[in-house]
Design a protein around this nucleic acid. Structure first.
Lengths: 219, 219, 219, 219
DNA sequence: TATGAATGAGACTTCATTCAT
DNA sequence: AATGAATGAAGTCTCATTCAT
């Protein structure tokens, strides 16, 4: 029977790294929750992926739901704050600024482990309403506010034409979020050529170009 | 024990045609799968929502997975064909055509019960890879092809400027899919004002405007 | 491997006796809870003893605690009412009445499956405070009241001497309850000769004799 | 994570003598076992109550069962011997002696921490048969023997009337044991007035009075 | 066909026990 | 001697699936 003789090979059972654990568990949990969803993720798998045993997860998190909420809250909040700080420093022409914000958002979110969070929350929104609310309020709407400010500046300066800023910002952001969701869901099954950078560039080109004032010069 | 004597009071059950059943089950299943995801949806709830008993579902579908696949395939395919047929008939300026296609797509998909499917597939992609493949191939890529044709026409006619059509079409479509996903996930938790129509209009305005040739006249 | 070939011998899996089930489960549960206590009783054992499978218990009882409470409440209440009714009919000399009540109580409780309940409640009192309260109020104190009435009659008639009736009734009842507890706990381990009837007789003899008025004639 | 920095604030731990530990553990265990039963008592709670950590319990006791047996054996035996010694010294009229024995038993058992043991053994008898046997043999039957001797003396002297001494002694003891069990189980839930002393007095009064010879003078 | 009682595999969770520190 | 992080066996509970009626 396989697995009967590896007793001696087994790595030490006790690692005693209490402070490192929670983070490792959160990481493992995030990956699996994103990939499979809450219900389809077994705590056993999370544990194994985090390098410990089933029962140990309960030393750090009360139960599966608590772990799930922690994954969302504790992974997201610190990052979103980091992003906001960066953003506040920027100055310059609105077009330029939008481009930079988008690129930066992508490099901080789209290419980090956080990229899975949008998919996760979209999937579990109705199963975890209070998390959905948290995410919309603390992430989506905050990101919107940042971009709204920039768009409004552009309009005020005469760079952009008048428009419904609230919906324009949604149009601006939608492809960002979509790209993150896509990455973690259907991208692997898509045979058409795709490059996120080109996608974002194309989006920025058309969006910014389309928003320019009549007399506005292209960038 | 409860439920022993209220049999006669129960709303009459036998008015339905037998062959209508699978459709009703698919409808009920679609709604619940979209709302809760595959794993979190109980077959019992599907049955109750469809107006029959748990065991009866097995008269029509081999098991839960089969039902899930049927939901996706049998709800999606007929509709996608309908959309394609409509689309092939259109003729006229590319700008006009794009607008009409988008509006039509939204009225046929975004406002129908199909609108939940994108969210469903995004959520379950990695749990049902072959369904994901099916959806990407049979829906996403076909929709893309339709729009690619139109965009290319616009470029050939000199309406639109040269660009990477493959990515442009993704930029064009992304907000559509995003709107559908949003509707079924985080929309209920968003306190900012939002109107899909305005969203799509804004998207079309900026996108088309941004794609116009230097000399291109606005529409 | 044992147990691999008995598949064909297996009794029919579906018995469909929904209305008989709850009672059978309560019976099985009572026996095991009395014998082992709440925590040490496995639902699996209860199920097997009741002749069904683990999961089926949950068709009738929400969970283990609910089952436990049901065992106590639904087994005890009907019986205690039956006892009270019987008691109210008696008339005659107090001595006689006490004897008859004790004998009757024993034959209705001590020799029935209810005999285990006192042990059960003594054991689980602090784990199920509200059940303990229920039992004390609905059983113990009601039994006390019956006997208090009789003792008081005896005193009023001059049969018994004056005494603290409240404590006298406890002295009268204690050996009854004790006998029931004993039966289900240490009796099997006691090598000294013991006969409940003789025990009760001896108790009645000394107790009644000890309670007689100076001039009271023995019975 | 909680509990990482409050190490220094924790109440000083090292003031206790090493050899006092087992006794403290036994005390803590006794209290919890009596209150909750064996299965429902967590070793962690015992440890905390004894002022040490979970793992340390295993330095003194092989496992939970061993601890349980130790609680019963090592708490009970020394006490029971002490009682027996006291008893052997008494001389005088049987009535007097019975009274004194009962009072003494109560003050040595009923009012000590040992008072919980009868409840404990009644509850766990069938889960720990050999402990039950031990308790019956080493405690119950020894106590019986003491009282049997006294009752027999009383009969031989003509104080008491002839009777089945074996059952009489059970009648004499039952309320004692019952009082101890009651104290640790249903007493807290009983709203009727109750005083153990009065209870025991009433018992002694009726019992002794009931046992007197025809010509026997009351005490 | 339709039902829903019955089943049992499988997931979550607890806690006695171990052992590196 | 003491700790408490780590383990995993075992128990509770859920729910997809079966099948007698």
């Amino acid at each position: 029977m396989p697995g009967s003789t590896n007793k001696s090979i087994k790595k030490r059972r006790w690692k005693r790294r209490k402070d490192a654990r929670p983070g490792e568990i959160l990481d493992a949990a995030l990956m699996l929750f994103v990939e499979r969803g809450f219900a389809a993720t077994k705590l056993d798998d999370v544990a194994r992926k985090a390098g410990l045993s089933k029962g140990s997860v309960y030393l750090y998190f009360e139960n599966k739901e608590t772990l799930f909420r922690a994954v969302v809250r504790e992974m997201v909040l610190p990052e979103i704050k980091r992003v906001e700080q960066q953003v506040d420093r920027y100055r310059g022409p609105a077009q330029e600024l939008v481009r930079k914000l988008v690129y930066q958002w992508w490099s901080m979110v789209g290419e980090s482990r956080l990229s899975g969070v949008p998919k996760l929350l979209v999937s579990e929104a109705s199963n975890f309403p209070e998390l959905a609310r948290f995410f919309v309020d603390q992430v989506i709407r905050r990101v919107r506010r940042v971009f709204v400010r920039v768009l409004q500046q552009g309009i005020d300066r005469g760079e952009f034409r008048e428009c419904d800023v609230n919906h324009a910002v949604r149009v601006l952001i939608a492809p960002l979020v979509f790209a993150a969701i896509w990455q973690h869901s259907l991208y692997p099954f898509d045979k058409d050529p795709y490059d996120v950078r080109v996608f974002l560039d194309t989006h920025l080109d058309t969006f910014l170009n389309g928003l320019l004032n009549e007399s506005g010069q292209k960038i």
